[in-house]
Design a protein around this nucleic acid. Structure first.
Lengths: 189, 189, 189, 189
DNA sequence: GATGAATGAGGCTTCATTCAT
DNA sequence: TATGAATGAAGCCTCATTCAT
């Protein structure tokens, strides 16, 4: 683990925090362990983040946001179903490749320490919302707040990932049929 | 002959733990605060629970289980839809009446400290599973593991409660249409 | 371990204390463990001994004294050498049979908590002193305080037991030659 | 770059531990008292010693070893009797000057918590052994394990110091005649 | 007398944060 | 800016002792 060059320390700390939190839980992630994993001195961490809580908040934001960066060939022109499916697949891919990211995201969300000052929705979230609105348009479901629908989609993907990680042999079925349930729920077909 | 170990005190500690954890998060719930809230001395807590973790585990079990106790007039004879709806309603009721219980349950689940030695499913969980199986019978969805379906229902109820607590004005819509989505997802109608 | 009959509780506690102290050291011998080992309730211990320190002091006294009870056929008429040898042998016997007793005695002595209100010497100690005085009579060594000689004999037996317990194969040599050293030291022959 | 870990502080802690243990016994030496006596914060103690037991072990090693450092003009060329006498005198000197060191050493030895991973014998111990071997050579006593003889010499010095500290007026006699006993024991003359 | 729950003062240790170097 | 020693407030837990039953 080469010591990262000076400008990247900020990122190195976030990476280290992610790793440690994933391995040992937020409660088991002292700043000392994080700075060690980041290859810096204990005190240096506080040059980059004023408090541990600031670090955690930024980590939360990064994790929340980062996903949207990995949607290069999003099918902008396709229909709502296809666009939702695309995001569904990418999230499941991420869940398989980096389960820690989602684990930690969930832990941070549950910790009740996140500031959450009505941040801008990420690209993915915005797209999920658009798709959900389109899919429910015209039916009674259009009475539902769009944010509620977004929460629902997120919950569905999260438990699908959780289940797949615990039972990898069911990955294919859950991916396919999990989406089908989601879609039928929203469209009735 | 001696002062008997008090069942009340046992319960008082669990109640206090629930309250403190709900208010300040698990991490912000020192045993000192819990015992104080329970009206006992710091050391006494350890007469009833050998370690803090034991207390948390028992709290988890209680919360997990307790819900099933409040289903007096469960419609055993009704069809799957009605039975699922009954449970859906009761959970939402609980979420409205005691949001802490579900908050803390989620926190404990996320903490990764629960022993979870393949405990028997609660009555409610078992019924959800039965209903889900009946509802998906005959369709492709019957290929899905029943546990996955249960996770899904739980996730759906949780986010519904979360949303309602944040936006009480949408309570009615979310309760009705949230269930409709769930049902359509499972049955396609 | 049958619960001892009421009158023997005092002794049961002392026995238990001896056992626990030997196994886990004085520091690792909480009153709770002692009372449990004695088959009584935690609080009952304090019916028999006002404080833990009192118990320890009495245990000390018992251990110190008890040895003298097991000298039934002490050769009162024999010469100093034979009498000293008799005691030497009996102490080594005890050290082999009940190493805990001496271990704990040493620990208690080192703890610095013993009251030690110039207690009467035990029979054995008194005999050691008489023998030592006789053996050194007429030589320069008679200038030494008799108590010093007693300490010396005790030290010699203690380390002999310690060594034998650690290296049982040397038991015979140490017993024989250890005594020879002691005797030559005192008499020069 | 940072405040360097201070060798002084390391030593100050050991000194403080020695002092407190001597005054109040190991059991009466909380880390809080030690750090206070060392003039540092409670937490700082653990910068220098990972656990209290580590501190105690190192203290033990220091005490065990340190004595050998104060034998500047050891008479390497002299005969066994003279060399043994030299060490005997130095130990008694130490016992008079720093009785705590030997008290605590004995306490630590008795505590049963020392790691004692077959450490190299100190210079003094090695010399005692050599002298004892020379002195007993040719007699039956040469059948005795050398370690036993070392234990014996140590025991003899310890009780001599103990007695002298309790009865300073006998210092001269005990020093002279105590050694004479030791020597006669080993050589028979 | 016997019981064991109750007490609360400490004990050891961890940790976020500060600050001298 | 980087470092890591220093800090001291908690945190969890143990334990001698008391006291209601």
């Amino acid at each position: 683990m080469a010591r990262p060059r000076s400008g990247d320390k900020h990122k190195a700390i976030l990476d280290a925090a992610l790793r440690i939190c994933a391995e040992r839980g937020i409660a088991g992630a002292p700043t000392s362990a994080i700075s060690k994993a980041a290859g810096i001195a204990e005190g240096s961490l506080f040059t980059y983040f004023k408090t541990k809580n600031d670090l955690l908040n930024e980590l939360y934001e990064v994790l929340r946001t980062e996903f949207s960066r990995h949607l290069p060939d999003f099918p902008h022109g396709a229909d709502a179903r296809a666009r939702l499916r695309y995001i569904w697949d990418r999230i499941l891919d991420l869940g398989a490749a980096h389960p820690e990211q989602l684990t930690v995201l969930a832990q941070l969300r549950a910790s009740g320490k996140m500031v959450n000052d009505n941040r801008a929705p990420t690209f993915a979230l915005a797209e999920v919302m658009r798709a959900a609105i389109e899919l429910t348009a015209g039916s009674e479901l259009s009475d539902l707040p769009a944010e509620y629908l977004v929460l629902m989609v997120r919950a569905q993907t999260e438990i699908t990932i959780e289940y797949i990680n615990a039972h990898p042999e069911s990955a294919a079925v859950c991916r396919a049929l999990g989406f089908q349930i989601l879609l039928k729920g929203l469209t009735g077909s």
